[in-house]
Design a protein around this nucleic acid. Sequence first.
RNA 1: GCCCGGAUGGUGGAAUGGUAGACACGAAGGACUUAAAAUCCUUUGGCUUUACGGCUGUGCGGGUUCAAGUCCCGCUUCGGGUACCA
Length: 918
Amino acid sequence: MEYNFSEIEQKWQANWKKNNTYKTEIDQNKPKFYVLDMFPYPSGAGLHVGHPLGYIASDIFSRYKRLKGFNVLHPMGYDAYGLPAEQYAIQTGQHPAVTTKKNIARYREQLDKIGFCYDWSREIRTCEPDYYKWTQWAFIQMFNHYFDTKLQKAQPIASLIKAFETSGTAGIEASCTEEMTFTAGEWKSKVEKDQQEVLLNYRIAYLADLKVNWCPALGTVLANDEVSEGVSVRGGHTVEQRVMRQWSLRVSAYAQRLLDGLGTVEWTESLKETQKNWIGRSEGAEMTFNIKGQDFNFEVFTTRADTIYGVTFMVLAPESELVKQLTTAEQATEVENYVAATKKRTERERIADRRVSGVFSGSYAINPVSGTEIPIWISDYVLAGYGTGAIMAVPAHDSRDYAFAKHFSLPIIPLIEGCDVSEESLDAKEGIMMNSGFLNGLTVKEAIAKAKEYISEKGIGRVKVNFRLRDAIFSRQRYWGEPFPVYYKDDMPYMLDESRLPLELPEIDKFLPTEKGEPPLGRAKNWTNEEGFPLEFCTMPGFAGSSAYYLRYMDPKNDKALVSTEANQYWRNVDLYIGGTEHATGHLVYSRFWNKFLFDLELICEDEPFKKLVNQGMIQGRSNFVYRIKDSNTFVSLNLKDQYETTQLHVDVNIVSNDVLDIDKFKNWLPDYANAEFILEDGKYVCGWAVEKMSKSMYNVVNPDDIVVRYGADTLRLYEMFLGPLEQSKPWDTNGIDGVHRFLKRLWTLFYKEENFIVTDEVPSAEELKILHKTIKKITFDIENFSYNTSVSAFMICVNELFALKCYKKAILEPLVILLAPFAPHISEELYQALGNNESVCDATFPICNEEYLKETSVKYPISFNGKVRFMLELPADMSKEEVEKTALANEQTIKQLDGNAPKKIIVVPGKIVNIVI
RNA sequence: GCCCGGAUGGUGGAAUGGUAGACACGAAGGACUUAAAAUCCUUUGGCUUUACGGCUGUGCGGGUUCAAGUCCCGCUUCGGGUACCA
């Protein structure tokens, strides 16, 4: 019987479905294990061979854990809201729900062919009302809570109101958009609208006028992580700064906890580092500067209070409110022009153009320590959104300040002994202080501490921690997203009652903004609540639906809660999360925030959502090229191309094999090439190649479906793993796949010869047992360490060795099949059944290595001289170090190598190596 | 600029400081076959030698060590992330 993979795979996929093999329920008698993949956005292009890489890895781990006796939760779903479907809708009029549904069906079909062990009964789609009900519900909770900075925890907004009623803002320690002070009396005298406005300043989900990233091409606002280098991450459109009233989530309140939590999770160092930088904690001081001749002061944030004596000017961000207050009459025109010019420029222009620019405000500040007068300037190199939007400039020791000082000929005072600041600034944090009054003679480190102490003692400033992490802008002026459960009364937002959830996305006639420029939901008919108040026009961003999906999988059908306490107590959090690094500063920050918020409300039992996280590398494309002679339809083979003037053109990798072009297929590929002519080498047309991104335009996309048809899913799974280390990026080259396919065929020949099943009940030999147990040990270690490429090699070695021994013994082959089951489940099921088992191989027990079988009786010692191996010497494994040394020295080959010289030193590493130093 | 990763045959890659190149692909040769496919066997880093063998070799330059792809210092280069964050 031949290895008929397509028959076997169809049989077992049907079988698993029929028997609900992968359905998971809570089982208190078994330990749980939760394995999660980052769920995909179902794009119109379908899956290419790079997408399943992480899914295969997590599938192997899930199956392994199940064989190890764990109750494994391994769900899958779809991140179904998103811009591409909506952009497509705008172009074609096709409803995004229709496109999305179609794409999901296609994804599912492709996923099913690979034989994953997902419990599909738990599937979720973020665009389904019974799912997004809980996204809306969480938003309401965020609206109804504020963050107590002292408790470092979310608290009900009702208790804040109570505090306001009894003592105003006195004693309140809460995260807010801007600091407020009022008494209980003042609070009570406010009208409802004003009170609501004040509360927005504290709510975790709040509405505020913010400077936002507005993307005209997409017609929406974007979050910071959706913008890179001044353009949108999706589509690369220009982004400009605008002030708009937008929903935001007070993620920044959780900055410290998000940072601390990183210490408790098993993520890669680089990922944790990226998140740390994104959170950007910096410890420094906020210092107060008085203004010369005015009864007024302002604050700056600095991490280098020790450089206070080197401050030679101050700089305000052009957007800063201080600009108006500090501009003198003489400077007014100049300042106004500068601010106006800055406003006109997009973020991108500002980034691209690093020229120093700025203008003098006319005012002077007083150095609170030295008493010197220092001019206040305005420049766009200071950001309004960070710190206080104003800085004290220390040109000698900050490169940006230095450039500014040089440009405007401002003084530069060096503060570190022996440093030269005539050409460039010295940003170093080492050295001895000078020109610095009471700090002179101290090291920088000492000076920082002493300066901090000094300024808090004298009341000049206070120690302060600043974070780079911004609140997440949560409004999108788009259609295809979760509607906000919000209505407006007297221009103030109010939440719908939870009983009204889900608030379903309404139908609209066109997926475009209204004539008035309102978001698409402005077109919806009767878009009001029961009392007739208008509902919110914006929808939620992409990350809304993905922020708590891992909780929903625990209890996906629950209509009373996001997740029941019982399910949450059992499944707790994700034990293993596999996905790409691209979510480091988006999804992985938002979901941790969301999780912590729900944790504060005691709705879930774990503070961190993802215990261990593995990043799979990208699969790149391997492109092939043909070379067309200029102005002709003649193509020249790679090694002859230098004799001609040629143009390099991409050619579909699917019509190239081992870099040799299939000429007939090429002629049929595109009409232009039907009459192409060729200059061959050795009768072949050899193509050039390069590693590039896998994309349609490079003609290097490989579809997993095609691989499954040609080789089967088990081969695809093994080959994806065999390509290289999971975390590393590597190019896909279909040519190597024959190796793993041959391995499976060879495995098959250990069971079947022609039509006969040849497995016997013979007792295995010591050698066979050693082969098996060596493999068990290696595979177990490799799976635990996600080193799947070496696992596949180990399987190949094992089968090659058993093949050489003609080993057809059940006692060896059955454990091997179980070992292989996580990697190649279909063939393993088939062979496991052939071995006489009625249950699924999924429910077998993972074999355990018995070290007894691995014991060696002898060791082949490499005998080296000055580190160079000259010959091998086989000695008993239990021979003592001294004996080994003696035997090695007595060997005639050693004597020959020594050539009469006496060895200076002999190193014997028992069981490993002998090194003789001459 | 800053922060992370990498760099090993023609290719993908392997190697707790202990025989570099496992395992595969490709290539070459052979067996089987009328032939092809499939399968099986042999060789395969480079240079050198009829052969035994020798020399050389993990991006570059130093160092530590009996022994370095692996550890340390200084570069080169390619990816990825991030950026007027005071």
